[in-house]
Design a protein around this nucleic acid. Structure first.
Lengths: 106, 106
DNA sequence: TGTTTAAGAAACCGTTCGGTTGCAAATATA
DNA sequence: TATATTTGCAACCGAACGGTTTCTTAAACA
């Protein structure tokens, strides 16, 4: 039951939900209407996203508005950073550039 | 059996393998020695990583050297871009709110 | 040639995942 | 107060996942 941010973004439905509520907070019912799935299914996804702090909720009467906790996304960015350094320095090497040109010729 | 780059990086062992072979190409046996797992398990992970083109292999005799196909990582970077725009423009949001309040005052 | 070594493929097993169904709690409304 | 609405939670089910075991193929080497 160990929730992980990388496991959270592995599911395509969850990624779609994230994009949907990134701009505007939404209730589970409204989110479900935007996809072809049930409310309960969305609720489960939201629970997983909440568990790894990718999403925050705001109660308003009997409705709960969910929105993306965008700061958390930086964790992925940080992880990606170690590879970004590699692909940037790789392109600065002349021989690598030449071998890339060779490939493109094919 | 649909392989997806986001599903591929969901597993912590696979992420560790990716970092390991990002700098230097390695054989499945050598990779397995670096973790506390079997060669067959690593082989399975490498198969998944190969299927979504995150890894490339180079045969050398009876040994197969695996290395990270770092260009593929940019796909994650591109996906992250749409959120990056949001968290960067969030700094400017305060200005927008203030100008809107000004308008409403008029 | 026979043996050793490196690796992939297939079968199996326990666990987890995603979805559905049914139910309970809390709030709004008549 | 009684009813309808919004939501979360638990139980269940089929599929996929991660790991192990076993078998086969291919190359190196005596």
């Amino acid at each position: 039951m160990r929730r992980d941010i990388f496991q959270a973004i592995a599911d395509p439905t969850r990624r779609a939900i994230m994009i949907l509520i990134a701009v505007q907070a939404m209730t589970p019912n409204t989110i479900a209407e935007n996809f072809h799935t049930t409310r309960q299914s969305v609720s489960k996804h939201l629970r997983i996203l909440t568990e790894c702090e990718l999403v925050k909720q705001e109660q308003q009467g009997r409705e709960i508005y969910y929105s993306l906790q965008i700061e958390k996304m930086k964790e992925i960015d940080i992880w990606l950073d170690q590879f970004r350094k590699l692909w940037e320095t790789r392109f600065n090497q002349l021989d690598k550039v030449l071998s890339t040109m060779k490939k493109q010729k094919k």
